[in-house]
Design a protein around this nucleic acid. Structure first.
Lengths: 138, 138
DNA sequence: TCTTGACTTAGACATTGTCCAATGTAGGAT
DNA sequence: ATCCTACATTGGACAATGTCTAAGTCAAGA
């Protein structure tokens, strides 16, 4: 993620303090924040940043393919900076935290032609649900 | 779905006009309405039914395992009455409609033990995304 | 350094969902 | 058949998440 800003600048992105802090917040291992969590953390470094800017920036990062949008539960969407590695998600049904996981087979090939109903299928995501060790203890 | 009401009565459900129309709306092939769509359709038969009741009833049907809650896009959740058959979903990225699909392999077995991170994994859902024939034409 | 179009802001608004106190009613008891 | 009462429904306030707009600000090229 460190060279993300360079890559984006190369694509004509205007580099602002706000965008920088949003990118910095997303940087990290296994981070899956909601938009408001990103806003809260960005505000620690740049107190006057507005919610609208965070939403805008996240939306742009998704469009640019740098970040994945994950909506697992009908609550707030979460943003996954690990967009360049093929992976899926393991979600705790109780607390909502997400882990990236890697699976052994290619799920796309599991959908036979007659089950595609004329769709142009372009993407597949596998979501495992369960209870995380933390919630299991409680 | 026709005997749904009987099954629920057997579980101590009090049978009201409101619950009946909600169940009737959900009855059908490949129906995946949002809560407000269910409310709109239920209102045609029972004009004074309230939104709260529709939400309550849908929530109960989910708890009872008669209906599946599907949240594919961070927009409104959709309700899938096909809960008794193992299936997955094919979603149109543009218009949001959902088809039930059946796949060839068991995705649960594709997640190796070390990738479970101590979770008690209980459920897996596979979501295919693409463009439906209708939207492709436009 | 100047200029300009892109970016940011605050807050109104929209959508989806939840909660609560007051009222109504299904179905067992009599 | 009627009554009782616990459970269900209602409407509207509220909450959470996300979108939009008009006005002000600023990054970066000339």
């Amino acid at each position: 993620m460190s060279d993300l800003l360079e890559r984006l600048r190369g694509r004509g992105w205007r580099l602002t303090a706000q965008r920088r802090v949003v990118a910095e917040v997303l940087d990290g291992d296994h981070v899956h924040y909601t938009a408001d969590e990103v806003h809260a953390r960005a505000s620690e470094r740049l107190p006057e940043i507005s919610r609208a800017t965070v939403y805008n920036t996240l939306g742009e990062l998704v469009l640019l393919g740098e970040v994945l949008e994950v909506s697992t539960d009908g609550r707030a969407k979460r943003y996954d900076p690990n967009a360049h590695h093929d992976h899926h998600h393991l979600v705790c049904s109780q607390c909502g935290t997400i882990r990236d996981v890697h699976i052994e087979s290619d799920p796309m090939s599991a959908l036979p032609e007659p089950e595609r109903f004329g769709f142009e299928v372009s993407e597949v995501s596998v979501t495992f649900r369960g209870t995380c060790p933390n919630c299991a203890r409680a």
